[in-house]
């Protein structure tokens, strides 16, 4: 299985390596050889992702996807979060107009110039050309939602052209008669898809990550549905939990009990109820690996 350590061992004892070690000051020391095994215990950091909803170029936050409050300039707010230790940012365009959409593409270019951490953009992407425009503007990943439900082949197309790491499939769902049903158009339309089968299909088609929002929890600040996330975690791609965080414990729960790889939130960051450094120390105190 682990052929890499074996190779490392062989370099360590071969006369060839002595030659290299002699000439190059940056050789791997004996103590470092053993430290590889110590660092085996350390895992990939869990990511904290502030989400900024953008309408007509301004950051807004909805409560249960309906009432909207303005919370600040998207580039400045993103830079502030990056400086505070956000691991990634998500910008979602919820503009209703064509003009608003155009503004968003310009905004993405400005974000890319300023922000030094990865960011995902989404909202209204319905073709490979939309995705290409945003990636060219400097986005690291694109997130597709309603369009993927309508045309699942879009996932395959974007993944094939840009690689699966560029494709985040966002899924909004709510419980109807005991079953998680996928919704589209910001929660306004109920589709005939079921959450787990849709998430599996999205993954098989080439989604690099799944961003799941429970419409029953979003904006409530009552916590995430951890059991549902834990089931999604069976998929071989990262799961981002979104919608419902009110406290650091909610986030700790979804990253442990819910086995999510990342937690996305908006209100708690926008309104300053839970600053990112406070959140990260709380997670660290519980032994959750964070940056």
């Amino acid at each position: 299985m682990n052929n890499i350590p074996i190779l490392h061992f062989s370099f360590f004892i071969s006369p060839f390596s002595l030659f290299f070690n002699f000439h190059f000051p940056f050789f791997i020391s004996h103590s470092h050889y053993f430290s590889f095994f110590i660092f085996n215990l350390i895992v990939l950091a869990k990511r904290i992702i502030p989400c900024l909803d953008i309408r007509e170029g301004q950051t807004v936050k909805g409560i249960n996807f309906l009432q909207l409050k303005q919370v600040g300039d998207p580039v400045e707010l993103g830079a502030k979060y990056a400086a505070e230790g956000a691991d990634e940012l998500v910008y979602l365009d919820i503009s209703a107009t064509l003009e608003g959409r155009r503004t968003f593409a310009d905004l993405v270019a400005r974000i890319a110039q300023r922000i030094n951490i990865p960011f995902t953009v989404g909202g209204g992407i319905s073709s490979i050309d939309d995705a290409a425009r945003l990636l060219d503007a400097g986005a690291d990943k694109i997130s597709i939602n309603s369009a993927a439900v309508r045309d699942p082949g879009l996932i395959d197309q974007i993944a094939r052209k840009y690689g699966r790491q560029f494709v985040v499939v966002a899924i909004d769902a709510k419980v109807i008669d005991g079953q998680w049903r996928v919704t589209t158009h910001g929660g306004h339309k109920l589709s005939d898809r079921e959450l787990f089968t849709w998430a599996r299909e999205a993954c098989d088609r080439g989604a690099g990550e799944i961003l799941f929002t429970s419409m029953d929890h979003d904006g409530t600040q009552n916590g995430y549905p951890c059991e549902t996330y834990s089931r999604l975690a069976e998929l071989p791609i990262p799961i981002i939990a979104s919608g419902g965080a009110g406290t650091a414990q909610h986030i700790a729960d979804v990253l442990t009990l819910g086995r999510a790889d990342a937690a996305l939130a908006a209100s708690i960051f926008h309104y300053g109820t839970l600053p990112i450094p406070t959140l990260k120390s709380a997670l660290r105190a519980q032994g959750i690996p964070v940056r």
């Binding site: 890499i4 470092h32 350390i42 990342a262």
Partner: peptide, 24 residues
């Protein structure tokens, strides 16, 4: 080796980088 121990691939996110000594 990552896939064999159940880690997700691609390897996406923030991970520790351990530099050799002396520091390059």
């Amino acid at each position: 080796p990552a896939a064999e121990v159940g880690l997700k691939i691609p390897h996406v996110g923030w991970d520790n980088v351990n530099w050799t000594l002396p520091e390059p």
